[in-house]
Amino acid sequence: MVIQRNITEITIEEMAKILSDCDSAASCLGHNLTWKGIFGKPRKLVMDTAILLCQAIDQNAPQKPIRFVLMNTAGNRNRGINEPVSMRQSIVTGLLRLFLPPHTDNEKTADYLRKEIGQNNAYVEWVAVRPDNLINEEEVTEYALHQSPTRSAIFNPGKTSRINVAHFMARLVLDDQLWNTWKGQMPVIYNHSKDEIK
């Protein structure tokens, strides 16, 4: 079933009905890279959608927790494990937080999952996938997963193809072992560079 609607117009009751037969949900929403997309409304598109999905799941009160996968960004630090960042990156991130609403939206959405949904929610389990600089590729390639960034998302970004992100997100909802490895975490995904592939 394909539903074409503006996500901001869907009520909790409608979303609960949509999700009633689902055992997983994924959000790959982002802001358009236009003036209106970056500075216009809705400024909290990603967070409001995550809240909508989680509240709809909560309303359904499923017998088994629903898996929720969020596409986030390597530019967002996981405050739950106090990831170290350089002073330079902290300054730039602070400026992004002030002047680029989409960055704040990504940060607050991850914080909502960590703090409000948490690790022991009866109805929602989550993973926030953090790709680095997104690129387009035709096919899935080898990729690496890390608990935290291994490079600076601002000063030395890696590359992650959109198709690899989609592949990993699909594997998360289908593979119990992979899900249990990353549940409640914010894994970073990078494409393997050619010299890294053995």
Rank of each mutant, 00 (worst) to 15 (best):
W126K: 10
T49I: 04
T150F: 00
D111I: 12
V129Q: 10
D48Q: 15
I81L: 12
S90Y: 11
I66A: 01
Y143A: 07
N82R: 15
I38W: 00
N133F: 12
G30L: 08
M1R: 08
E9F: 01
Q147R: 02
V165Y: 05
M186L: 04
H31S: 12
L100M: 12
M47F: 13
Q147T: 08
T181P: 03
N191R: 04
Q147N: 11
D175K: 01
I135L: 00
M87H: 06
W35P: 04
E83K: 07
Q59D: 13
L52C: 05
T8L: 00
G158Y: 13
L145F: 08
E14P: 05
E142T: 04
G80D: 14
G80K: 03
L33Y: 05
C54F: 08
R162T: 14
D176K: 05
T49F: 04
M71K: 11
L134R: 01
E196W: 01
L53Q: 05
V129A: 12
M47A: 05
E83A: 14
I18Q: 01
D195W: 09
S20R: 08
K17G: 09
R162A: 14
S24E: 02
M87T: 12
I51K: 14
T141A: 05
Y112M: 13
V140C: 02
G30F: 05
H31F: 12
A56E: 14
P62D: 02
L174F: 02
R114K: 10
K159M: 07
V92P: 02
S20A: 11
T181L: 14
L19K: 04
A166F: 01
I12L: 08
N120A: 15
L19A: 02
I81Q: 10
V129K: 02
N76R: 04
V165P: 03
Y123L: 01
C54A: 13
Q4W: 09
M1C: 04
N82G: 13
T109M: 07
F68Q: 09
G118A: 09
T8G: 07
W126I: 08
L100V: 15
S27D: 10
G118R: 08
T8R: 06
I91R: 06
Y190P: 05
G75S: 14
N76S: 13
S24Q: 00
R79I: 07
L53K: 00
P102R: 06
K64S: 03
L52V: 09
P42D: 03
W35Y: 14
I197V: 11
L100H: 06
E9P: 00
R79C: 09
W35S: 15
A110P: 02
G118I: 10
W179V: 05
R130P: 11
Q63I: 09
P149L: 03
C28W: 05
N78L: 03
N156Y: 01
H146Q: 06
P102E: 15
L95F: 15
A74W: 02
I12M: 07
G75M: 11
L113Y: 13
I135T: 14
A56I: 15
T8Q: 13
V46A: 12
T73C: 10
S86R: 13
N82M: 14
M15C: 12
K41P: 00
P62E: 02
S90N: 14
T8S: 13
T141N: 04
G40P: 04
A26P: 02
R162Y: 03
K17M: 11
E116L: 03
A25I: 15
Q185F: 04
G37R: 01
N133E: 12
P84H: 14
V140E: 10
K115G: 00
K17E: 14
